[in-house]
């Protein structure tokens, strides 16, 4: 037997830490890492949901989320490099908004 509340609590804490990181960090790479933490928390919830409901849909969606995360990191890295080339600095709170 498995208690689903344990992985779910882990996921809740990971998501909270990810949110904290996104708001707290100013280096764009660290913001991206925090986003990865949040995505992983969601994956953990999806897999745990499968355990509760005894089916596979959540795992299929976990795979989809992992693929989307890979695409997101690729584009994010390109954006960060572009920003660094333009401004020599990747702090998100110093990006001009106009």
């Amino acid at each position: 037997m498995i208690r689903p509340v344990i992985p779910l609590l882990t996921a809740a804490l990971l998501f909270a830490i990810g949110t904290y990181g996104v708001l707290r960090r100013r280096n764009a790479v660290l913001v991206l890492m925090s986003v990865e933490l949040m995505l992983n928390a969601v994956n953990l919830i999806l897999v745990t949901g499968d355990t509760v409901r005894q089916q596979l849909t959540g795992q299929v969606f976990t795979l989809f989320v992992i693929v989307i995360a890979a695409a997101e990191v690729g584009v994010g890295l390109a954006l960060i490099l572009r920003l660094f080339r333009l401004r020599a600095n990747i702090n998100v709170d110093e990006v001009p908004l106009d």
Binding site: L13, F15, A16, I17, T19, Y20, L23, R24
Partner: peptide, 13 residues
Amino acid sequence: ALLVGAGTGLGLS
């Protein structure tokens, strides 16, 4: 950051 993070964590937990 602490406010939003702690709120999210507490709410979800």
